[in-house]
Design a protein around this nucleic acid. Sequence first.
RNA 1: GUCCCGUUCAUCUAGAGGCCUAGGAUCCCAGCCUUUCACGCUGGUUACAGGGGUUCGACUCCCCUACGGGACGCCA
Length: 467
Amino acid sequence: MSVKTRFAPSPTGYLHVGGARTALFSWLYARRHGGRFVLRIEDTDLERSTQESVNAILEGMTWLGLEYDEGPFYQTHRFDRYNAIIDTLLDKGLAYRCNCSKERLERLREEQMAARQKPRYDGHCRNRDVSPDEPHVIRFRNPDEGEVVFDDLIRGHIRVANSELDDLIIRRSDGSPTYNLTVVVDDHDMAITQVIRGDDHINNTPRQINLYRALGWAVPQFAHVPMILGDDGSRLSKRHGAVSVMQYRDDGYLPEALLNYLVRLGWSHGDQEIFSVDEMIALFELEAVNRAPSTFNTDKLKWLNQQYIMKSDPARVAHLLSPHLGDLGIDPAGGPDLVAVVEAQRERASTLVELAAISAFYYRDFDEYDAKAAKKAFKGEAGQALAAVRQRLAGLESWEREAIHHSVAETVEALGVGFGKVAMPLRIAVTGGAPSPDLDLTLYLVGREATLRRIDRAIEHIGEAGA
RNA sequence: GUCCCGUUCAUCUAGAGGCCUAGGAUCCCAGCCUUUCACGCUGGUUACAGGGGUUCGACUCCCCUACGGGACGCCA
């Protein structure tokens, strides 16, 4: 049977990093085995599901490049199918109507807790033959005896006694089907071969297996991936900072960097840290996924992001950088070639937001000098050095790196000082103190006009400070 | 409370009984490189949760304890 996996989020919020990793693992498994990947929207909770959330999830999947082969399917479009299955179960006596009041259920629960027992429905309505005409829910008749055993592809052998389970509700009193029923019907109907999902579902699995059996369906394989924790060891949530995948785009991360970070969170292939998407596909194994939950670490994500900024095609980085420059009010079209700027600055930033910030000076005069850098550079004979080098730069026939370099070198020689005495003030004068590459390259990219203008400004600044 | 699952450096992880005086990566520290900042390079600090077994030998197997997480919804 050919492999088919799925990602089945409920649209009650944005796509968060935990869901994204589950989707990634599922997607990788399908790609690795030449199978198909399905996207299914589990929107049976009419109260909380929203179209905005569906859009946000779709947008996140697209940004990460997790393209699906089928779907998105919506469970709300399949109610007839679910109801048909429920009716079958009812006819066969494998499900029954229950009209227990919330009060009774609440009391039962409290009694069981008090008696140090696991709260579970007591089967009160199993043989009461509740009329279809009165308000009721439908419960699945879970087996009383025996146990459910399954081999989780990640967790291994798991066994749960049926006595631990109870008769779960499969249709609400408003007539809508519930999760545990719909997920089974869908995974069966869509011929899912490996159910890869978060391990918060591990306790649901035995119930679902009982449903498969009652319906006479083949049980798929399961793989429960551990969850992602925040830096305080609790389940990752908004209070830990960015959890929305799209937030990472806005914060200047490349999708492939996030993907690489996510794939290494809970999975490994020896000592390898950097994986292209093709490598992930070629090497991914569910068997190598860790059983323990892991903590999200932004420092490592940043390092990976920097690696990708440094090694990716500069034209692509430039393309992704543009909107971040736009956020700063900069239109790169009005200055040096953005690709050249990216090549010059790329190893100095760990996010595109940082890259934009340290590259702004190529496109516009900065507001003020970095205090520390200015203090260090604009002292002693800095003014004279700047004036001297300005003269040479102004007289250059062509504005080329080599010529610029010679101008600086000649100034250094003429003044009989160390290289830094000229280079430092010049660099700060032109960049304001922002991280920058070789001086000649920096000046070349900034251009003659802006360079000379900024040198004059620095000389003036030094004069004011000295006076 | 009951059940399920988990536990190697601060963090992500390697380790499938001897290869382990536990390896890699991030972070941190020191040094080198250097006209700034980085990148890069070199080195350093730091871990098998605890206790019992099994074994000639245990990070690896078993048990208990502790700690952590999850589930126990007419949520998914």
